[in-house]
Every structure is written in structure tokens, then in C-alpha cells.
Nucleic acid binder design. Sequence first.
DNA 1: AATCGCGCCTGACGGC
DNA 2: TGCCGTCAGGCGCGAT
Length: 295
Amino acid sequence: MPELPEVETTRRGIEPHVKNHCVEAVEIYCKKLRYPIPQNLAAKLVGTSFVEVARRGKYLLLISSAGTLMIHLGMSGNLLLVDVGAAINKHDHLDISLENGLCLRYHDPRRFGMVLWVSTELWRHRLLKTLGPEPLPKLSVKQFSNRQAIDVKSAQHFTRDTFSAEYLYQKSRGRRISVKQFIMDSHIVVGVGNIYASEALFMAGIHPGRAAGRVAQARYQCLVEAIKKVLSDAVQSGGTTLRDFYHGKDRQPGYFQQKLNVYGRQNLPCSVCQHPIKLLRQGQRSSFYCSVCQH
DNA sequence: AATCGCGCCTGACGGC
DNA sequence: TGCCGTCAGGCGCGAT
């Protein structure tokens, strides 16, 4: 289940092997992901190069002069670098062969992911334009080493640094949904998935079931800091496994490297007060929390 | 406008 | 051994 740190780790992993290498061939093995893979991808991509490997929320953006390949990994998606001509395995859906002898391969058992082609300015795209701010905007700024790859308005949209306690506080006034569902809403803030939402709320001492509109601004300050800490720690642990992205298929998602304080730990003792961690069902999602430390 | 719940999909796992 | 039900979950979308 890729969360933002896993997507960022993937972005960093593929970037040096993909950026500025000409596309030689595109092969589609399965059309039906969440949306169909555009059939004319080869016509768009062959002979061009990706000049930037960027990310907006959990969307990976491979930007070429002709347009942008937008990839979401969904629940079980994965991008691998294999040698051109490597055998196809089950659930491999797309191959993009490059002139350097490597092939970028999209693999996704559950097919919740998406591979889309965007030829308009990115900030106009319906799936991107409504997204909330990045929790770690500094990562976004670093992405755009090639300023010409992206139009000014999209770059501004991607790098706006508006994620703050005041922002969450304002956005949440009058909202009755739980604070956990609120921070997991990508239109509020991108990249906070189920695991890190539980972890950040624990760190901030906020009960996941509390109404978003009934969280004080000072507590949102704690939450903002917790979200940034949890995500940047996970990006860091992802980064430590990055050395070998190409050959290293044994790389682990960041949350396997990281100590999880509550997620998946129901009935186990809280790391702070030793009381058993509780499980709460919100929507169709599991939340884990400590009823003593969080309120 | 906000909220709720559905559907997409496969693999893992438990019970019989 | 195999079959069947359940769960996991990001996200868009339609209904309310």
C-alpha cells in the first residue's frame, strides 16, 4: 500500500535511470486499471524523453515535451526497472523501454492504480487541480530542477506552501467528519494515508474520532508537526534503501523500516503508557489509537 | 456544500 | 487438499 513516502521513494529511485533517456518502445499488456491505459501512448512517447520525474501528492508525473505520463500506484502498484526484454510476470501491465537498456515496468495486482496521459497544463487537470497542499512542500520544490519542464502556474500550484495549523483550522470549521477522515482527504492535504494518519494523530495526542471542527488551532499545530515528522522520517527510511533501486527488488516500503507506535498494534501495549492500543472502524477504515494518550 | 457509502480488484488467511 | 467468505485499502464518484 504505497503512501506518500513510498511514492517519493519510487520517484527518487527511477529518476536517474529514466530522466533524459529517450523512449524506444511502449507496450501495454492490460488496458483495464482504474481507467483504461491510453492506447496511443506509444505514439506520444516513442522518440521523446522525460525531462522531469515529479510528484504531486501520490501522483507520479513523468514530464516530456509532448505531455505528461501521470501514474498513480493505487493500493498495490509498483514501478520497477528491469532490463529491456526481461520476461513478463503476472500483473505486469505496461513497459516503457528506454535507450539505456532499461525498461520502466508498471506492475499492479489489484489494478486500483492509474496510468493517464495529460497533454494540457498540469494545474488544469481535473484530478490535480482540486488537490490540497503538499505536507512537505520542500520536496516539491526540489523536484523542479528543470524549470522549463513545467509551466509557471503548474509549478506554483505544486509548490505552494500553505500547509499550516491555521490552514487546517480554517478548513475544518463547521466540519463534523472525524479529524482522521479530514486529514486523509486529499482535497485538504495530500499524501496522508491510513497508516500515517493513525501515527500522526497518536503523536499529536488527538483522538481519531474527534470531529475535525472541534479541534483547537493549537492542537492543529501539533498535528501539522506530527504529519511532517512522520512523513519525512518515512521518506528518510525509504531513502536509506534507495542505493540499489534498479537491482534491489528487495527494497521495503518505508513503514517496514519505521517504528509504528499504533498502526496494526491493537491490544498491544502503548509505547508511552502501556495501556492496550484500541481499534476503531471509521468508514471502511481501521484506526488505531491509545485511549489514554489521545483525546 | 458536506457527507456517506459503493465499487474497483486480487491475494492472504482462517474455518471447515 | 480445496473451497468459500472476509478483509485489506486509495480514490473517484454518485446519491442524499
